[in-house]
Simulated assay, not measured.
Amino acid sequence: MTMMMPPIIDMRLRPPIPAWTRGSVFRTAMHYPRQMISFKGARSAWLEDLDLLFEEMDSASIRYGVLIGRASSGAGTLGGVDNAEIVEAVNRYSDRFLGFLGVDLDDIDKGLGEIRDYASVENIKGISIEPGSAREPRWSDDASLDPIYEIALEYDLPVSISLSGLLSVLGGHDITWSSPVSIQRVAQKYPDLKIIVSHAAWPYAQEMVVVALACPNIYVSPDLYASTKGMICADTYVQGANMFLEDRTLFGTAYPVKDIQDSLRDFLDLGYRQDIVPKILYGNAAKLLKLDL
């Protein structure tokens, strides 16, 4: 890159380690490069080469990649990753990875138990749910999810709620399950809960930006949908950040969807105000995840 980069935090990165590659998770994450010629994918992803990924991360100043847990109980082709393996990865590569524990919405009690077991692990930084693409989809304010939000408050952990039209489709559902409107109700019910909307409810970008404007405890993490030049709705996320979400917009690549250098280059070309770029690339996530780099 031509400009000096801060130590970037990538808020959605799925590395080619056995926990991801042995099942369908990594292969499904390669949906865009497998389906569309405009998404070339990363060389490390096609080769499933972790050392090469680290080289690619270094070339783009990616200090940490955040492993967002997935426990989808067989929904569509999404697959899942055991939380024990997320913990193993963040322990083994503690200078590279941070982790969010996934909760299977078909077995919430098990997920709550694992949060209690692993919440004290140093590089575990949050909880992950995917209600709009679960085996039986539900809205984010469904009463069955309240124990997850309450344990997040108990352990002072943010909750990532992953929503996107594609994610819902890959889970076997229609895209309306990616609407962010129900997240507003969660945020207002739990005003001290920090909520990250991963994939930023794409393509409901306008609704997402307005919901985040209304709720100061919501963080918008569009990842590839605002780090891909020409992507539908990307300009809405950029406008939202430039106008009023500069402290609550987060950067991500959604690797292995794209080459990391390409993602960063596209992000920098999308029109974000230059003065807020360091916040989005690093500062906002570092504060949210309680990092001291």
Rank of each mutant, 00 (worst) to 15 (best):
Y204T: 07
L291P: 01
P18H: 13
I276W: 04
S179K: 10
G76F: 00
H199L: 09
S72E: 15
I276V: 09
T253G: 12
A143H: 14
M208L: 07
S120C: 08
L13D: 14
V66N: 08
V209P: 01
R12H: 14
A234H: 10
P180M: 09
D223S: 08
N123H: 09
L157K: 03
L67A: 09
M57G: 01
G283H: 11
Q35E: 12
R265T: 10
R116W: 10
W202Y: 09
A45Y: 05
N91K: 07
Y32M: 12
L112K: 14
Y272D: 05
S160W: 02
E136F: 04
E88H: 13
Q239F: 14
P180W: 03
S128K: 05
S263D: 02
D292A: 01
I37A: 12
R34L: 15
I9D: 11
S59K: 07
N284W: 05
C233E: 12
L163K: 04
F26Q: 07
Q188C: 06
I86T: 03
T249D: 02
G102K: 12
R248A: 08
S61K: 11
Y272R: 03
T2Y: 04
L268T: 10
Q274S: 12
L193M: 07
Q274V: 06
S72V: 05
L105W: 13
D51M: 08
G252R: 00
G126F: 01
A143K: 05
R92S: 07
I86W: 04
Q188F: 09
Y32D: 11
F97H: 10
F100R: 01
I232N: 15
L67Y: 02
V90F: 13
G165W: 02
I183Y: 15
A75T: 08
A29K: 09
M57A: 02
S164F: 04
P137F: 03
P15E: 06
Y255N: 00
G126A: 05
A42N: 10
P16L: 03
S61R: 12
N123W: 02
I175V: 14
L291H: 01
T228R: 07
P180L: 06
A187K: 00
T28D: 00
E48Y: 02
D262I: 13
M4Q: 15
M243S: 15
R12V: 07
R96F: 06
L153K: 15
G76H: 02
I124T: 06
K287L: 10
R185G: 05
I17H: 09
F39T: 01
D95Y: 04
P222I: 08
R135L: 07
Q184E: 13
K40Q: 14
M11E: 05
N91F: 13
H173E: 13
N123I: 00
F100V: 00
A187C: 07
S162N: 04
G132V: 03
Q35W: 12
R22Q: 10
G271R: 11
V81E: 04
N83C: 11
F97C: 08
T253H: 09
L213G: 04
Q35S: 14
G126N: 01
I276S: 06
V25F: 09
L288R: 11
D142S: 15
N91V: 14
V238L: 06
R12K: 06
Y225F: 13
G69C: 05
L268P: 04
G80H: 09
D107E: 11
L47W: 08
S73V: 04
D259M: 05
V103P: 00
L78W: 03
D107T: 15
